[in-house]
């Protein structure tokens, strides 16, 4: 049986762990809040760009920009967005599994992988997939310039025929508890030309009622397409960052709870062992006294 001091040492070790998980939970909660603010802040710009995009691609007759369609399939670039750090539950595992599933289910496609985030860099290091680019996200908050650099290279590869399609896999942020793994097509750009949304109908009317385009409708669209790609990648990175912190917060919350349970259990064992030791000593003393008496 474990001695008293053994149990004591275990209790203090679990307490230390709990302190760490509690601190990590608090840090993640703060980072999550900031990441959510980032998502909020990006929304007006993103929805405006999308609105312009959808409206324009519907109205521009000569919508033959290469970013809109290429009429070719076969080579796919897959952007996999994970986090740099672990200890965030199943967050990275889910994304990596979705990436593998995508590759497995499309054996006719030649998939090359573009990695964002150190967890995926480590994961694919040991596996035999063609990796065309990899980088860590870094410690700072996600910024637009970073997404721009990533998008520039993605578009470049698409235009020089290294890839015919581009997909991105990332953890969409739903709430601190829930993240959706999303596979989204970003190239060729698919404009939402359905009559559905109210905004696009508004824009329809505006374009019908004589918006002037400078320099020209085609040129506005041509410069808008890469922006749209950047915005989608930026959004994926922002969402992924919020999801990561949410997942870590949840994971650390349950880790702290488990540590509490464990401490309670160990304390019980400790007290029982201590009581047993006291009882044993008492018995010995009484036994000894009885022996003397007799």
């Amino acid at each position: 049986m474990a001695t008293l001091s053994d149990i004591k040492r275990r209790i203090s070790s679990v307490k230390n762990t709990q302190q760490i998980t509690k601190a990590m939970k608090m840090v993640s909660a703060a980072k999550l809040r900031r990441a959510q603010e980032g998502i909020e802040a990006a929304r007006p710009y993103a929805s405006k760009i999308k609105e312009l995009m959808d409206g324009l691609s519907k109205h521009t007759k000569s919508a033959t920009h290469p970013l809109l369609s290429k009429g070719k399939r076969g080579k796919v670039e897959l952007i996999v967005v994970t986090s740099d750090r672990g200890l965030c539950g199943g967050f990275n595992t889910n994304i990596l599994r979705a990436a593998e599933k995508f590759i497995r289910e499309n054996p006719d496609l030649e998939v090359s992988i573009n990695i964002l985030g150190r967890r995926a860099v480590d994961y694919f290091k040991r596996r035999e997939y063609p990796v065309i680019a990899k980088q860590a996200l870094g410690n700072k908050r996600p910024d637009y310039g970073f997404a721009e650099d990533v998008a520039d290279k993605v578009i470049e590869r698409y235009l020089d025929d290294s890839s015919d399609e581009t997909y991105i896999i990332y953890g969409e942020f739903v709430s601190a508890m829930t993240q959706n793994t999303v596979v989204q097509k970003i190239l060729p750009v698919v404009a939402d030309t359905s009559e559905g949304s109210k905004e696009s109908q508004d824009l329809d009317n505006k374009i019908e009622h004589g918006f002037t385009f400078e320099p020209s409708e085609e040129e506005v669209l041509a410069s808008l397409l890469p922006k749209y790609v950047i915005v989608q990648i930026f959004r994926a990175i922002l969402d992924s960052s919020a999801s990561e912190h949410g997942a870590r917060m949840t994971a650390m919350e349950s880790a702290s709870r488990n540590a509490s349970d464990m401490i309670a259990k160990l304390t019980l064992i400790y007290n029982r062992a201590r009581q047993a030791a006291i009882t044993k000593e008492l018995m010995e003393i009484i036994g000894g006294a009885e022996a003397l008496k007799g």
Binding site: G210, F213, E214
Partner: peptide, 19 residues
């Protein structure tokens, strides 16, 4: 700063989308 040169906007300007 428009793509084709600087432009100014006052109230009641006509509808324009410019790069």
């Amino acid at each position: 700063p428009g793509a084709d040169g600087e432009f100014g906007v006052l109230r009641d300007h006509t509808l324009v989308i410019s790069v």
